[in-house]
């Protein structure tokens, strides 16, 4: 069976929109309603965040949702059973994103097997070192048909980008600026130049850009300069303000769609 991430990039040339949410927030059992709402409203891909007690790369929004998810009792085991229940309904690719330690404690090999079983197409673990992926853990992802997605930043050297492109199997997650998640800013010429540089490198993997995308301007810039965009904190912020998943998601997408329509129609 063809991996859904591969399929997505084959079928859709541009403006790919991936949304991140923290599993277990606002309620322990919100996972399924969020996934349904995101798919119904037109997300192309979903990143399901595994909450962790010490999210070093995350800003205040994801710190808060992670802490609340853990208080709600979220764990990898619970997440897998939620994903299994909804598996048949989901048509877009699901990616698990989290920190390495909870996955290590679960057992990486078993994690990959279970993730694959419940319909997950890819995994992002930003603190798994490249060389350990290459020499130790990569085989578990590959044998379970999971794409492994690495991050790059404007500070990542050309050689390292090439090395990452070589190891990546789904897409490359280009962090818009060297920052923690949810730091709202405008795309400056520096970021545009960085994304241009990536395009000119003609990498074998498509590039999605994430971190800081929160409004019309930043989404426009992301769509204009990469295959697509990843939004996390901006969506979760709406869910912090109002926990009614369906209405919040619809409103959020209406705002995004007007952006997309006025740009490309």
């Amino acid at each position: 069976m063809i991996n859904k991430i591969t399929q997505l990039f084959e079928n859709k040339g541009k403006d790919i929109l991936s949304i991140f949410f923290t599993a277990g927030f606002p309620e322990l059992n919100s996972t399924q309603s969020i996934i349904r709402a995101l798919e119904e409203n037109g997300a192309d891909m979903i990143e399901v965040g595994i909450p962790y007690s010490d999210p070093l790369a995350d800003g205040p929004v994801i710190q808060k949702t992670s802490a609340m998810a853990l208080r709600n009792g979220m764990s990898i085991t619970t997440l897998f059973s939620q994903l299994t229940e909804i598996k048949k309904e989901v048509h877009i690719p699901l990616i698990l994103m989290g920190y390495l330690n909870p996955v290590l404690q679960y057992g990486i090999e078993n994690f990959c097997r279970q993730a694959s079983r419940c319909g997950v197409s890819g995994v992002i673990l930003p603190d798994l070192p490249i060389d350990e992926y290459e020499t130790i853990y990569g085989k578990y992802f590959e044998s379970n048909h999971l794409k492994f997605i690495f991050l790059i930043t404007p500070d990542t050297s050309t050689n390292r980008i090439l090395q990452i492109d070589n190891l990546s199997t789904g897409f490359i997650y280009a962090v818009s600026s060297t920052s923690t998640t949810g730091k709202e800013f405008c795309f400056s010429p520096v970021q545009i130049e960085y994304l241009n540089r990536l395009r000119e490198m003609k990498l074998k993997n498509p590039v999605l850009v994430g971190f800081g995308i929160h409004n019309h301007e930043t989404l426009t810039a992301a769509f204009g300069n990469a295959r697509g965009a990843i939004i996390g904190s901006a969506y979760l912020k709406c869910l912090i303000e109002d926990n009614k998943v369906e209405t919040v998601t619809r409103k959020f997408f209406n705002r995004l769609k007007s952006t997309i329509i006025c740009l490309y129609n």
């Binding site: 962790y52 990898i76 909870p102 996955v103 290590l104 404690q105």
Partner: peptide, 21 residues
Amino acid sequence: GTEGIIHGCRTLLMQTPDGQT
């Protein structure tokens, strides 16, 4: 403690079975 990762380093740490510090 049990083996795991804390603050960028693989070592022993006090954690839950789910890997939360």
